[in-house]
Each structure stands twice: as C-alpha cells, then as structure tokens.
Design a protein around this nucleic acid. Structure first.
Lengths: 220, 220
DNA sequence: ATATCGTATTTTGTATGCAAAATAAAAACG
DNA sequence: CGTTTTTATTTTGCATACAAAATACGATAT
C-alpha cells in the first residue's frame, strides 16, 4: 500500500512533448509540412500515437490541419501576435493581482532574488540568461495566483508566440524600459498592492507587444 | 476553376463535435467513463477516429485521460468554477473594452434589439429564452472585439462551466441584479465607453460566479 | 514548347489485429 | 464466511493493413 505508482506517460503524450520542443526550438519551422511516415521513423513510433499527438497540438493551435493534406506548423502572423498579447496582458495582470493578494513573504523574497539575478544578467549583457530569469519571474508570479487554470491558459497562449518573442530583437531602449518595469513589478509585489501590480503587468506586456511587432515587421 | 470545394469534415472532427454535444446536453454526465467500443457502435465509426476525437477533447479539458484506464468526462468542481470565472471576467472585460472601441452603430443597435427581447423574456418569466438571448448578447459583444483568439479562448473556458451555469438556479434577486447590470452594459456600449463597459462586465461575471457557486453548494 | 489528360506514386484517412494492462470472476485458503 | 490468490474476460495502447485522396510524373495533343 502507498507504493509509488510509476506511470510512464502514454506514447502520444511523449510524442506531443517532443513535437512541441521541435516546434519551439525552430527545428520544425512555421509552415513546415509534417510528413507522418518520416516523423514516425525519426521518432521510432507508429502512426497511431503520432497522429493522436498531432491532433492534440492542433487543438492547442500549434499546428494546423488541412483535411487530406496533412498537418502544418502554424505560422504566427503579425495579426496573431496583435491578438494574443492583449489577452496575455489581461491574464498576467489578473495573475499579478491575485499573486499580490495570496503570495507569502518567503515566496515574494524568492522572486526578488531571481529579479536581482536578472538585473545582473542585464548589466552583463547576458541575453539568454536574462530571458530565462525574466521568464521565470513571470512564471512564479502567475503561479503565485494559485489559479492553475490561469497558469494553463497563459502557457497555452504563450506557446503560440514564444518563437516570435524569442527572436524579437530588443533595442537598448526597450530593454532598459522592460527592466525598469520589472523593478516596479517587484516593488508592487513586495508592497502586496494588487491594483498596482496588475496595472504594471498590463503595461509591461504592452511594451513587449510593441517590441515584438517592431521586430516582426523588420523580418518580413 | 473557382468551383466551390466541398470538404466534408474529417471523421475525428465530426466525432468530436458529437461528443461535445453529448457532454453539453448532459447525456454524457460528468464522471462517465467513455467505453470506446460502445461509443464506436453507437456512432458507427472505428476506434481510430474516435480516439483522435477523445484526445482533442482531452486537451480542451472537457475530458480527462487516465492512462490504461480510458477517458472520463471531466467533473467540474466548485474549485474549477472558482478558478475559471475570474478568468472569464477578465477576458469578457477585455472583449467589452475592445468592442466599445471598435463596434459600429449598426452592430450596437443589433445588440440593443436583442437586449430588449431579453428584457421581455425576463418580464414574462421565460427562463430558457432569457438564457439564450443573454448568451447571444455576450457572444455579440465578445465578437465585436474583433479578436478571434479572444473569442476562442472565452469559448473554450465557457465550455467547461456551461453545464454548471445552465443548472444554476437563479433567485429572484440575483436575476434582477443580472438584468440591471445588462441594462448598464448596453448603456456603456451605446456610449462607446470602454472603461465603463469593461468594469461592468467584470462585475457582472462576479455576480454570475456568486450565483453559480451558491447553486453548486446546494446540489452537493 | 506548352497545356492537358491519364497513370503511377506517395500520403493521408479509416479499419482491424495483436499485445499489455486493468477489471471481473472464480477458486483456494484462512 | 470473509479474504486473498489465481484465472478469465474485458478494455485500452500501439502497430499494421487496406482504401481513398492528393500529388508527381510522363505521355499525348495542340
């Protein structure tokens, strides 16, 4: 009794995860046709679990299905980003509001710690590390809301624009602005001020949207 | 050339739709185990497209997968409703804000017309018709945002609590309150006042949450 | 040479079959 | 008689096979 049950995830879930990584990393670029047999060979699984995984990613929006013509990695257009980021602003704002109400001091201190790391990455011009700590801070705050559905919803939307965010080339100015907004965020969180944290997060993601759109425009 | 291409939806999509309807209508009640062969027989399809459909509904959250033990219609708990409705409040608020900015007068007039129908259903105590016109108004406003991703996101969340909302027994007072809030909504929309419409919608869904939670509590 | 038609090949869609896990039923034991 | 163990049955997971659609290719005609 009370034995730790080891349930290895079903194949279609594992395949979905691998596909997600391939899409995130850009190895499967937007617009790429997914050839089932080809993918089956590289992954060493049969078509059944692969197709189930493809259906999942399609309902998530990462992939688009073309009847009788297979699946294609979704192309994230400028319009998509324009649609998604205001939604994320609202949701991260709500997350921040709830986090400011519910997070305890020790968790807030943890966020502050990572924030300080982020600042030093900024000062040392370490872009990848900056992005990672940045992402982690947003994640911790959202999770601090205590609302798992909110976390899932944000992650699902975030997944669609992740590549675009990653490739977005920050200017010196937009980077500085983002950092100063983060400073305000942490202050509002430490003050446990829901209204202020919500407002800053909404504003912060607006800034992000502008940065990304500017960057996408250049690349096309 | 230019011939109208008739693409009948893939089987797994059709099956997913039928399952969705069965779940919505309550014929497949929360907690019901989905027996694959049984469902295959009633629907007249093989297991492959059925399983693909089940995977889709699972990523939507309408169904839960238990590895090696099949799929179960998700049970919407009180906690789930408590999590989902604040998210919907934020999103419908955003939808209202955008709608107040983008909807033209003719569309606003259309909403007013349906609002008037809803009011008369309220006065005549026609509950089903009231619910339907109510739902339609929210849908029109959200669609008026012009943000399809927002519409999809709200629908996806809405699907999870739909049954709970339907069964929620309104008291005389909560019903009256909902109606008066709707009156304010329409006024804010006609005044094209984004801030006000957003605030009212957020408040309105808070009211709804209270109603539903009160109702769920009684039934358990 | 280009366009159109017909055929071959590839690729997706659906059904079926086999293996492994889980559940139900029956038998053995205390 | 109740509890555990063993066996049988059902049900899910994955792989394969067949059918239908789409694409690629080549031949023929203009």
């Amino acid at each position: 009794m009370n034995s730790t049950v080891i349930v290895r995830a079903p194949l279609h879930v594992q395949v979905a995860e691998r596909l997600r990584i391939l899409i995130d990393s850009g190895e499967l670029a937007p617009g790429t046709r997914l050839n089932e047999i080809e993918l089956c060979n590289t992954m060493g699984v049969s078509r059944t679990p692969l197709r189930e995984a493809i259906r999942s990613l399609a309902t998530e929006g990462l992939i688009e299905l073309q009847p009788n013509r297979g699946a294609v990695v979704s192309i994230v257009s400028q319009e998509d980003v324009t649609e998604i980021l205001p939604i994320m602003a609202s949701l991260e704002g709500l997350g921040g509001r709830l986090a400011a109400m519910h997070m305890d001091q020790s968790k807030i201190a943890q966020v502050r710690k990572i924030h300080n790391q982020m600042i030093s990455h900024y000062k040392n011009n370490e872009v990848a590390e900056y992005f990672e700590t940045n992402r982690l801070i947003h994640e911790l705050i959202t999770e601090g809301s205590g609302n798992q559905t909110l976390v899932d919803t944000i992650n699902s939307l975030s997944a669609k624009v992740r590549r675009a965010r990653f490739t977005a080339q920050m200017t010196k100015e937009s980077w500085a602005k983002a950092v100063s907004e983060h400073e305000e965020m942490i202050a509002a969180l430490e003050a446990q001020d829901p209204d202020r944290l919500e407002a800053i997060l909404v504003q912060h993601i607006e800034t992000k949207r502008a940065t990304i759109l500017g960057s996408i425009e250049q690349n096309q």
